[in-house]
């Protein structure tokens, strides 16, 4: 079974049931549909980070580089005033992102621990300043998407991306695909080796496994999924700018992952919803919302050592 824990199955069943129904109740309120769509896209990004940090053991502060690249690559690759096919160009964006991740991973994975954190942070900042300083990529304003892509497959089109509800379902599909991809990888023999190398790299190497190669493949998988999330975000708002790839973006995703329960993957969805929900609530309560937000996060981290998923498991797995 892909989803091993009872809590995980219950949470995901409830989540997808509610998520499928949300547009039916909020169809007239495109703001909320848009807001939830953003949360779903962020959940894809946070799950990809949770996989790397919680399951592979790669604590990166440069993950947002790929989030930004996803958006930039789409705008760079597509003609300005032509509705390209979403699936074809998503494939191109993810393919190129995977190649870039392969090159970057081959360098950064030669370090570990604090040095890995520093080098990923540095590379991400290099990306940020590269796009910020280059006029051809719009500098600090970034690039705009003038035409949303079409989504036909063999001439049949079910989704119109100009329609917020349709876009919502595309983001939800992204959550499902990301979740299944990560879970299938983790349940495979490859996933077991990854798990073992996180727990004891020396021991895993002594079983005859080149853990560098396994980590590199994992890094490519996580980064490619992050690029997909960035592509969706850019399409939703119609632009991409260097803010997508700041280290704050990576840091916020890391907080969401920790809040949800690091390494649980489904906890990343829970963490994203909670973080975004809290932020929305505090923004409407006080101008000093960041202060309250910080306090709430500190409290939750102190009280829920294994995150929200850990707390749910404690309640439901008895």
């Amino acid at each position: 079974m892909i989803f091993e824990k009872r809590t995980e199955r219950i949470f995901l069943a409830i989540f997808f049931l509610i998520a499928l129904c949300i547009p039916l109740f909020l169809e007239d309120n495109s703001f909320f549909v848009g807001k939830v769509t953003t949360i779903l896209i962020l959940a894809v990004f946070v799950m990809s980070l949770d996989f790397l940090v919680g399951r592979v053991g790669l604590v990166t502060l440069g993950h947002a580089l790929f989030y930004g690249l996803g958006g930039y690559l789409f705008v760079i690759l597509t003609p300005e005033y032509e509705a390209v096919n979403f699936w074809v160009y998503a494939f191109y964006v993810m393919g190129i992102s995977a190649l870039i991740a392969l090159v970057i991973g081959a360098v950064v994975l030669r370090t570990s621990g604090i040095y890995f954190i520093m080098i990923t942070l540095a590379i991400s900042q290099m990306g940020y300043y590269f796009f910020f300083d280059s006029l051809e990529f719009g500098g600090g304003d970034g690039l705009f998407i003038f035409m949303k892509p079409e989504t036909s497959i063999f001439g049949l089109s079910f989704l119109n991306l100009d329609n917020p509800t349709h876009f919502y379902y595309l983001a939800l599909l992204g959550v499902l695909i990301t979740l299944l991809t990560i879970k299938i990888v983790l349940r495979s023999r490859f996933g077991r080796i990854i798990e073992a190398s996180r727990l004891n790299p020396e021991r895993t190497e002594a079983l005859g496994y080149n853990i560098f190669a396994f980590r590199l493949i994992s890094y490519v998988i996580g980064s490619t999924l992050a690029a997909y999330a960035g592509l969706l975000f850019a399409l939703q708002y119609g632009y991409v700018n260097p803010q997508f790839m700041t280290w704050e973006m990576s840091g916020t995703a890391l907080v969401m992952s920790i809040l949800g329960g690091m390494g649980t993957i489904y906890g990343a969805i829970l963490g994203t919803i909670t973080y975004e929900g809290l932020q929305y609530f505090f923004e409407h309560v006080s101008q000093d919302w960041k202060l309250f937000m910080g306090g709430a996060i500190i409290l939750m981290v102190l009280l829920l050592r294994k995150g929200l998923a850990g707390y749910l498991e404690k309640l439901l797995e008895k």
């Binding site: 798990e195 073992a196 727990l199 004891n200 020396e202 021991r203 190497e205 002594a206 079983l207 005859g208 496994y209 080149n210 853990i211």
Partner: peptide, 20 residues
């Protein structure tokens, strides 16, 4: 490197068993 040595068909049972 270690993993290549092990691929020459060497196996190791460590002190303390090395469970994951």
């Amino acid at each position: 490197p270690t993993w290549k040595r092990m691929r020459r068909d060497i196996a190791y049972v460590p002190e303390g068993r090395g469970m994951f």
